[in-house]
Amino acid sequence: MSAIRTDAAPRPVGAYPHARRVGDLLFLSGIGPRDPRDDAIPGNEYHADGRLKRYDIAAQTRAVFANVRAVLEASGARWEDLVDVTVYLTDMARDFTAYNAIWAEHFPDPATAPCRTTLGIAALPTPIAIELKCVARVQPPLPLAGES
């Protein structure tokens, strides 16, 4: 088993890696939309006292997809290698339609899209509205010329 961390994705909010490879499978820890450079959350607007005023699920969905892609690439996998995705939304009634439309942009062919489960939950550990938990298949490296 090998643990993967990358500066191209936001730092984990606890003591865990971005991903762990076991054989040809890659298990990603929960990944949110925070910006890896400064931890800002795309689309969030705050009141003067720091409380969340509103958020933009489209901006967060696009950001979380970019962060997942960054972890996949750091792990030797590609977006197309995703086989299973669990999506956590903090407001299923409000956000599912917009998130689902962006999903369809990134996975236009259901026959090649990963399996997906979407759950509505009460909260996430930071003021984000979406988090993804993913499993991908990592292709083994091709042998070099002359190797068998």
Results as ranks from 00 to 15, higher is better:
64 V>M: 12
138 V>D: 03
78 R>K: 13
42 P>K: 04
76 G>N: 08
98 A>K: 10
7 D>G: 05
42 P>G: 03
82 L>C: 08
8 A>I: 00
82 L>W: 10
5 R>V: 11
53 K>C: 05
101 A>T: 11
35 D>T: 10
129 A>L: 07
142 L>F: 11
86 T>K: 11
37 R>N: 10
121 I>S: 05
89 L>F: 09
119 L>Y: 12
144 L>S: 09
145 A>M: 13
51 R>F: 01
110 P>G: 11
129 A>E: 11
93 A>K: 15
130 I>Q: 02
82 L>T: 08
20 R>A: 12
105 E>K: 11
147 E>D: 15
89 L>E: 07
105 E>S: 07
140 P>K: 04
136 A>M: 10
67 N>W: 06
113 A>T: 11
71 V>T: 06
3 A>C: 02
125 P>A: 05
26 L>F: 06
51 R>E: 14
129 A>S: 15
19 A>L: 03
54 R>H: 08
81 D>P: 00
45 E>F: 01
14 G>S: 15
71 V>C: 01
134 C>R: 07
87 V>L: 12
59 A>V: 04
38 D>P: 03
20 R>M: 14
11 R>P: 00
112 T>L: 09
79 W>A: 04
117 T>F: 12
147 E>S: 09
87 V>S: 10
124 L>V: 01
19 A>F: 02
85 V>A: 08
